[in-house]
Amino acid sequence: MTFTLKVWRQHSADEPGRFVSYQVKNVTPDMSFLEMLDALNEDLISRQEPPVAFEHDCREGICGSCGFLINGVAHGGQRGTTVCQLAMRFFKNGDALTLEPWRARAFPVIRDLIVNRSAFDRIIQAGGFISAPTGTAPAANAILVPKEDADTAFDAAACIGCGACVAACPNASAMLFTSAKITHLNSLPQGQPQRDQRTLSMVAEMRNELFGSCTNHGECEAVCPKRIPLEFIGKMNRDLMRAAWHWHREPLVIPSLVQLPSAEDSHEQFHEEVRIHEEDQAHVEAESPEPAATRR
């Protein structure tokens, strides 16, 4: 098989990019899309041209590293498939394929098809966890989890954080990604104590990172390699309403006071400070609509 590729080439974040056309010959139907790019790169190296930079690692659709747009479709258009798992037999011999990096304000291009997706990490930092310091865990079977809840949590936790949902959304919204993590943790009994603060913080951080909002296009669900359903965005919105509706009493201490560094660094004071600080943080996160901003 032979393909004409139009590839986005951009040397670095500060330089403008452009499309460059390449011919790739001797492609076999069993090759994966990335193996086809490997072949292109070998060819480019032999011609002393810089190879196309693209991100990839596990090549079995689970690490979430890979991803770019093929003819405008994130991961290329085969349902539930990352681009590393997409076989060339999916395309027709002679096809012209345009390759572009994810396009979103929150995902700046680093080089060629590689973008910076650190914004996703910061959404997780805002509350995408259950606080369980090592060593304090109750016996595993002491917490009963109904199978249906465990299954829902798992379906949501299957997200690989590749960013296709953002790239496919006309608003560059990260709501499918965020709602998947919220649904995973909020569906479980272990996730209940932090449920409200988690939802409020993560949604606020999503907005701070310049992702857009959901307007029900459903493009994200269509390209998601793990088939995360749109329904989770509904769940997230319901949890957001629930969190806003819950009444949390005012914190007892004024945040700005305890955050000042203490003059002396004695053992007891350190402990005291940490204790108050943590208590206070919990309230701030639950109370304020923009806790993440406060924290940073």
Binding site: A132, G135, P138, A139, K147, Q190
Partner: peptide, 22 residues
């Protein structure tokens, strides 16, 4: 044994039986 306890409390969605046990 501690590892499983730790992971469950972090919210790792291990497979469950209908009674809610692992």
């Amino acid at each position: 044994s501690n590892i499983i306890d730790q992971c469950v409390s972090q919210g790792v969605p291990f497979a469950r039986e209908y009674g809610g046990l692992l």
